[in-house]
C-alpha cells in the first residue's frame, strides 16, 4: 500500500505541485490548507509523513508541529518543513519544537523527494 503523506500549505498551487510530485513518486497524499485544517484531517488516520509550510493563517506551521508532538498517536510522525524561511532564527524555533527536516522553497522535485525518502521510502 502506498505511503500516505499530509501536505499542509495555504497556497493551493504549492499543494498541487507538491502533491503532483509525490503522487508521481508513488505516495498517497492528503491536503490541508492550514494547521487547523490539518489537525481536523488527522482524525485517527495513519500518515507516514507530513509536509508543512511555516507561514499560514489560523494555525501556523510551528503551532501545528507543537500540537502534533502533543498528540500521542502522531508524536513520532516525521514532519518536513517546506518553507521560504531560510533564516537561522526561524530554523532554531523549528528545532525547538522538534521540526528537524527543513526544505527551502522553491524546491526542485528531486530535492523534495530525496528529503521525503530519507524519512519514508515510497
Amino acid at each position: 500500500m502506498a505511503k500516505s503523506i499530509l501536505i499542509i500549505d495555504d497556497s493551493a498551487s504549492m499543494r498541487q505541485v507538491v502533491a503532483m510530485t509525490l503522487n508521481n513518486a508513488g505516495y498517497d497524499t492528503v491536503e490541508a490548507c492550514d494547521g487547523e485544517d490539518a489537525l481536523g484531517k488527522l482524525d485517527g488516520r495513519k500518515f507516514h509523513l507530513m509536509i508543512c509550510d511555516v507561514n499560514m493563517p489560523r494555525l501556523d506551521g510551528l503551532g501545528f508541529v507543537r500540537a502534533v508532538k502533543d498528540n500521542p498517536q502522531y508524536k513520532f510522525t516525521p514532519i518536513v518543513m517546506l518553507t521560504t524561511e531560510a533564516g537561522d532564527d526561524k530554523k532554531a524555533q523549528g528545532q525547538a519544537v522538534g521540526a528537524r527536516a527543513w526544505v527551502v522553497k522553491p524546491f526542485q522535485p528531486p530535492q523534495l523527494l530525496a528529503a521525503v525518502a530519507k524519512l519514508a521510502l515510497p
Binding site: K69, K75, F76, P78, I79, R100, A101, L119, L121
Partner: peptide, 8 residues
C-alpha cells in the same frame, strides 16, 4: 521524538 526513524 523528532519524528526521525533510523530504519527509514
Amino acid at each position: 521524538r523528532n519524528g526521525m526513524d533510523p530504519l527509514a
